[in-house]
Design a binder for these strands. Sequence first.
DNA 1: CCGTCGAAGTTAAGCGCTTAACTAATTTAT
DNA 2: ATAAATTAGTTAAGCGCTTAACTTCGACGG
Lengths: 367, 367
Amino acid sequence: MNHRKVNVTGQIGKSDVVRAGTFAFEKENSFVTIKDIADYVGVSTATVSLALSRNARITKETRDKVFEAVKMLNYRPSTAARNLALNRTKTISLILPEIKHLFLQPFFSLSLNGVYDACLENGYRLQIEVASYQFVKRKRYLRLFQERAIDGLLYVGSTLSDLYLNELNDTGFPVVLSGSYLKNSRIPYVIGDNRKGGEIATMHLFTLGRRKIAHIIGSFNIPSAVDRFEGYRKVLREKNLAYSSHFIGIGKFTAEGGFQAMKKILDYEPDAVFAGNDIMAEGAIQAIKDAGLKIPDDISVCGMDDLPLAKRITPALTTVKYDIYKIAYRAARKLIGKIEGKRNGRSSEFVSVKLIIRESCGAKRGK
Amino acid sequence: MNHRKVNVTGQIGKSDVVRAGTFAFEKENSFVTIKDIADYVGVSTATVSLALSRNARITKETRDKVFEAVKMLNYRPSTAARNLALNRTKTISLILPEIKHLFLQPFFSLSLNGVYDACLENGYRLQIEVASYQFVKRKRYLRLFQERAIDGLLYVGSTLSDLYLNELNDTGFPVVLSGSYLKNSRIPYVIGDNRKGGEIATMHLFTLGRRKIAHIIGSFNIPSAVDRFEGYRKVLREKNLAYSSHFIGIGKFTAEGGFQAMKKILDYEPDAVFAGNDIMAEGAIQAIKDAGLKIPDDISVCGMDDLPLAKRITPALTTVKYDIYKIAYRAARKLIGKIEGKRNGRSSEFVSVKLIIRESCGAKRGK
DNA sequence: CCGTCGAAGTTAAGCGCTTAACTAATTTAT
DNA sequence: ATAAATTAGTTAAGCGCTTAACTTCGACGG
């Protein structure tokens, strides 16, 4: 055993302070450092560092002593020092779109929770950015990268297509998209199977005997909305149902938009409607009720997303579960995988969707 | 001018790389450092550092050269190095409650936006933590502090009363509460004036001639809910109106809860109700409608918070605006002030509330 | 004409941690 | 018995930045 001189005063002083409270410091911001542990145990700081990282070169005996000292002195490594030495931050940044629209809110909090959980499991910190106009214009995400403040970037539900983002990704800096994707871009993404969702919903309505199935799309400019629409079209094609633009409404993702869209469609006497999301479905239901028609008897309604409101409204909404939490969770895991250099197979992935049958479609009528 | 030897190869190599793309690195992670700037300009790194911080000891001439080099080489300081040297992180942590309840969502996103904006304005990064059971149990916030990963802690809408949080605050570590407060604690907070809100709402109903005013409280265990209730009681007392427990319902902050609470209260024939939040007001309105009563003719309804749904429902809800965004923004500013050692007067502060008159109270009946 | 002062830098230490390269002592192989 | 290999550390450099203390040089007052 190596007997080095130990600064007894300093050491006792420190451990006194530590024992005094739960915290590693008293008035004067004196945090316990690796040096304190080294002195306490009587080894070099290198040994402490190696012991803490369970390096095989250090005996179990020494390692135990180190861990004991860590506990005694309540040592915690300095994040900044570690980041500097290791040239990484164990932090990812979540870029959220500005939430102007209420309909984004469940999306938003579910995403956050999914990402947070993935971070927690992997020991990452989560930093938030709101992708305001300023943010994009000033290329704040670029700065975050250049200042080495984060290890990776996770965009959630963004429709922005920024050249620099592609360039950033191409330099090898880890970027992942959650719940959206970019055309003509190599940026990996995780997203729900929107097309399949549209298909399942439409197919379900078809199976219930409906033949005049309308669709309310959020916007033709949002890729995932278009994918849902394409699922719808596919079924019409396969089942030889007539496709008419009279049966297509644009609902802008809002209840009000869904309401207006449905009102117009009603003139053409549909017997079913697949709304591109639950919020628009809610508006559509209101329009149908206002027209004096019965749901599901006169018109079957199917939404998509399975937001909490789906169970709450009357009649309870049949919809396609689109698991935002899972998408975000997986996206974060993929990002962390990229950061840690894992070649994780498929660059992008799809999270499966699932039909949730409630009252609004009429499938339960028999009961 | 000091003529030092400059590593020409290295320098040209670097600046080539820089000019090649928008990014300060190519394949091999070679970021531009302060040393590169120093070499480029022909001064010491100290001079660069001082010039960048606009220290008066450096002439404008030199400073300009430094800034030019920074631009040329696309230099950005390393966050980790800076944090280590300055012993701070320019990061605050926002602790969010777990969002199980939908009603929390607007609260949540508004808070986040307020805090984010305050951070942006002050050059702080925003780190998120979700206060799950795990989080509290493992004292994760304590670790964040001990590992010097953050400069301060902002709790939003939390009801948790954790001993360690008080202790942490007492050591001088900056902690601020947004939208809630703790009994028997010195932790500063920013909150809306709930009591006043209850008062304004009730007083308004009184002014409209109502004398049998009921109240639906979210829960008697949540301080801010109790404060709203106390505002209500105060008006009853001042106006000599009878207070009856039959006129008090507990709505658990949900629409369903508000509905049930109102149903019971209706037996006692109130002529007005002040619901502790808009969500419960929505439920109450449903109950009143179901009973075949007219709003506002038979019963005036007033909510609180002024969530987006308040304008959307029928009749549009009269309510008291409770500005979550502003509360969060102010709370974050207060936290940053504490971090930067400002003695910012009052330790805690109240954000004022405001009556928003719509249809549900009957004040606009005359029009 | 010399000492003093201020201006404009520079030197070097330090922030707390990691790790490549080295060393001393012990084991193992021959 | 001795060289080689292994074990269990240590030393020291480095991560990129800040800043206290020092240096150098020219200006200026007496």
